[in-house]
Simulated assay, not measured.
Amino acid sequence: MPEGKIIKALSGFYYVLSGNETVQCRGRGVFRKNKVTPLVGDEVVFQAENDKEGYILEVKERKNELIRPPIANVDQSILVFSAVEPSFSTALLDRFLVLVEYNQIKPIICITKMDLTNSEQYDDIQSYANDYRQAGYEVLLTSSETEEGIKDLYPFLEGEISVFAGQSGVGKSSLLNVLRPDLELRTNDISTHLGRGKHTTRHVELIKVGDGLVADTPGFSSLEFTDIEMEDLNFCFPEIQQKSEECKFRGCLHLAEPKCAVKLATENKEIPVYRYEHYITFLQEIKERKPRY
């Protein structure tokens, strides 16, 4: 049986890339019975009735999957956040980072619209970028308008399956248009009434960029920690996880425990206060989460 990778899912059809051919497939009823929904990025076995149409028979085991956006087998996530319009949010970025880290996907932070910043905003973004680099993250400062920093992004995409994710209106589609001008992806300005971007990407699709595949995804601005437990959160903040090894008590949650190295490092400004505060906020959110039945 032929095998391939789902590169697009739209209106009940799955477009499977097999070699140099793309075959439009439907899922067999067995998937509904087994509650398995094929996702973009899935490696699948399919049966082709002809060279253009077929049926997916099997979804191979996934190394990871995301729910929002719905995609599987991702190597890395390019977290696209704008410096302005909408304003840069460390709280939202940290939320994305936690979910990406939890799914064992390498995050790369890409801050767009640097050309729109004034000197004060520019300095603020540079300061935040330094904080995240200090924590071990790759941070790129870019502009789709001037193409600043775009060439620095290409090497990260080579040979990888990357998902572009972030709040709507931050310039994901504009960034992809610079990387692949022939795409001519639709973009929209920020809604002045809502203060956020209008959704321009309606479905998830893997697009070839150089020797890699990149997913453009619908924008979204709310994420929930549905599967993450309190003891997991520590590992989703690299600098907190590193310092936690010096805590007196194993399993320290860095709340009110004595001789907590993380709290001490925060007081000494070795860990940014906002990162620690977000950790505590997320911890409380997980603690208060309604149990699933």
Rank of each mutant, 00 (worst) to 15 (best):
L116T: 15
G29M: 06
E138G: 01
T201S: 12
G41R: 10
G4N: 09
F235D: 12
S82P: 05
C110K: 00
S162F: 11
F220Q: 12
S143W: 03
E49Q: 12
E49A: 13
V178G: 02
I56N: 07
T37G: 06
L223C: 04
F237P: 12
V36H: 01
E267W: 03
A265Q: 01
L93I: 14
L253C: 09
P238E: 02
I78R: 06
L57R: 14
Y293C: 00
S173F: 03
F282Q: 08
R186L: 15
A72H: 12
I286H: 02
D216V: 15
K259G: 03
T117S: 04
P291A: 07
I71Q: 00
E246I: 09
V170G: 01
L157M: 04
N234P: 02
R292W: 04
I56T: 10
E267A: 07
A129F: 05
I56S: 10
T201A: 03
V204Y: 05
N103W: 00
H199T: 09
V30I: 15
I280T: 05
E288L: 12
F249T: 11
L92W: 12
I105T: 11
T266L: 06
Q76T: 14
L140F: 14
N73S: 12
V170P: 07
P272G: 06
K52H: 15
L255F: 08
C236V: 07
L223T: 11
I6N: 04
L183S: 12
D189R: 10
D227H: 13
L93E: 08
F220P: 04
E277R: 10
D124K: 10
Y15R: 05
E270H: 06
I6C: 02
K287H: 02
G149T: 13
Q76I: 11
I125A: 00
D51L: 11
T226P: 02
H193P: 02
F88L: 14
E49G: 13
E277H: 10
I286Y: 01
E288H: 09
P86Y: 10
F156P: 10
Q104M: 09
G29T: 13
V45F: 10
F225K: 08
I78K: 07
P218M: 09
L153G: 02
F13N: 07
G197Q: 05
R292I: 13
T266E: 01
E239D: 12
K5F: 04
L223D: 06
I271P: 07
D227F: 09
A215I: 14
H199E: 01
K5Q: 15
S162V: 15
E288N: 14
A129K: 07
V163R: 02
F96M: 10
F249D: 03
E231W: 07
N20K: 05
V40E: 00
N103H: 07
Y55S: 15
I190R: 00
P238A: 06
D216Q: 09
N64S: 13
N234Q: 02
L283G: 03
F235L: 12
